[in-house]
Amino acid sequence: MSLLELDRVGKSFGPNTAVEEFSLAVTKGEFISFLGPSGCGKTTTLQMIAGFLDPSHGTIRLEGKDLVAMPPAKRGLGIVFQSYALFPHMTAAENVAFGLEMRKVPRDERDERVRKALALVGLAGYEGRHPRRMSGGQQQRVALARALVIRPSVLLLDEPLSNLDARLREDMQIELRQIQRNLGTTTILVTHDQIEAMSLSDRIVVMSKGKIEQIGTPQQVYEQPASAFVAQFLGKTNEFAAEVERTAGLARLVAGSWSAPAPAGATGTVTISVRPERISFGSSGLAGRITSRIFQGNHWLFQCDTECGPAIVIRQNDGQPQPDQGETVHLIWQDSDMSLRASVAA
């Protein structure tokens, strides 16, 4: 049975719709990410789960109970805010203890749990520090400890790592994942960083303009994007228009001088989408010319002008000679590396 259920949840601000028809079932212990560009409604959705915004439509249930009627203070969710939202006039320990105080946890137990929570996030010894005198990463950890110490049924994180620098962010990602695995806390993370979403989550909810584009495991959304938006948002991708041609009962997929047997059921014009790292150069295939060649350490990045429009190709730097700028090449890829979508009229 799922722990948290959102059923066709929507939110409008006056005439503007921020979130539409949002349905999701989260199972216990799962790590879910909401991924999407700025303004797509991630925070709005999270705030509705947290109870700071009332949904305009739909229902939210936690362990089968209706959440919408419940005030946010009673929901027992742990929340980490983008700005950390630490209480500036309280020490790290006092911050972490606040939620336990509200729950009237006896003093001895409280102190013990605070100590453990701070140790869990690697801040043993920082009990008496005020947030002002801590680094961004340390503040982040206090916020996490404060949310975890109340043993929340669901942990909600709104872009918790976006204020940290790249290195620290990677460290925190690993740590966050470890803590989450150890405690088994069901977690929802809001982010617009696709790498972060892919490396942390069990499942990703890709959103755009208030709507869910796709829900799936990181592999699913990367390799079988349900829409052009998902394909483009999750890393670079190449898209070619192709025709399904039937000659003598054999259906073939044709894009310029490239062709392959068409999968069953494909008709008319379709869009082929292939990741740049899955393309290689061959002696026949989609013809094109290399317009630029950029060395990026462990790989080469090629920009090509092909019969079907511009394309990018990424090749591992494996010591083999690579084509030069201006050279004519043929692009090839495995059938299993491409995904097909019926082209939308346009």
Partner: peptide, 9 residues
């Protein structure tokens, strides 16, 4: 910060 306090009960 206020929301954090509320979320903690």
């Amino acid at each position: 910060v206020e929301m954090a306090a509320i979320s903690l009960g």
